[in-house]
Amino acid sequence: MIEGAKWRRWVYFHIPLAGFLIWLLFPFYWMMITTVRPDGELYRPWNAPNYTPFWTNNPTFEHIRYLFAETLFATWLWNTMVIALAATAISLVCGVFAGYALSRLKFPFAGSLGTMIFVTYLVPQTLLFIPLADIIRNFRIGDSPWALILTYPTFLIPFCTWLMMGYFKAIPKELEECARIDGASRWQAMIYIILPVAVPGILSAGIFAFTLSWNEFIYALVFLSSPQEKTVPVGVVSELIRGDVFFWGPLMAGALLGSIPVAIAYSFFVEHYVSGLTGSVKG
């Protein structure tokens, strides 16, 4: 906290903070206000006498109704949820075990294996989707949720593995040694001691993985084609932009509703999540 006169606190703390908050939150505000603004106001020219871009006097839920009644938005939400949860679950299980093995077990090439996993994370998706498209065609899982559930882990597992590796390294190895002297096998020591202690790390990896798959765009765009199979980011963009016509109201309504699950996930676990990222294990 800044010490001293009141004006100093305002100049150095409150005003910059307010500016920062406005900068951060304005897009969300814009999304919200566009969602509830009637079409008549949305497409009013900027030099019209009653042009009011930042608020509305006639809020409406018409765009949200349109989204659910006239598009497959509910289906997209469901698809996205299923795909994100499944991909996160697969990646977490693999990431936790791989991270544990790489940070705790001594085996040949453990170090270089860890680096290799990290390198795969660095291959951009915009390159990887081309060979992956071929694989997906060969396995005949194109245009189904499996196309995404099985490809998202290609970038989620390296990510989870690295995050968990760091977290496991921060847990004192004496905890595990003590458990093993106490009569636990390596497996039991991991289940009863290490995993419960690593819950903050697992939660942050899970939230990150969930968000990444929820927002993923390019694989979803390439691997899915039928409208009823699409995810929210792709569905909203492909069905609500027709040629050069942007249906701004439903578009923004879709974006707003699409970001709510992620916001809920973050706010629920925010404390764990922070301690997971800063890697604090309290003894």
């Binding site: 004496e174 003590c178 093993r180 009569g183 636990a184 419960p196 003894g283």
Partner: peptide
């Protein structure tokens, strides 16, 4: 023999209490 079968108990420098 693995540690669990040696019938020993160990006290560590950092106590190694299970925090949860």
């Amino acid at each position: 023999l693995p540690p669990m079968d040696r019938d020993i108990a160990m006290v560590f420098q950092n106590y190694a209490l299970y925090p949860h």
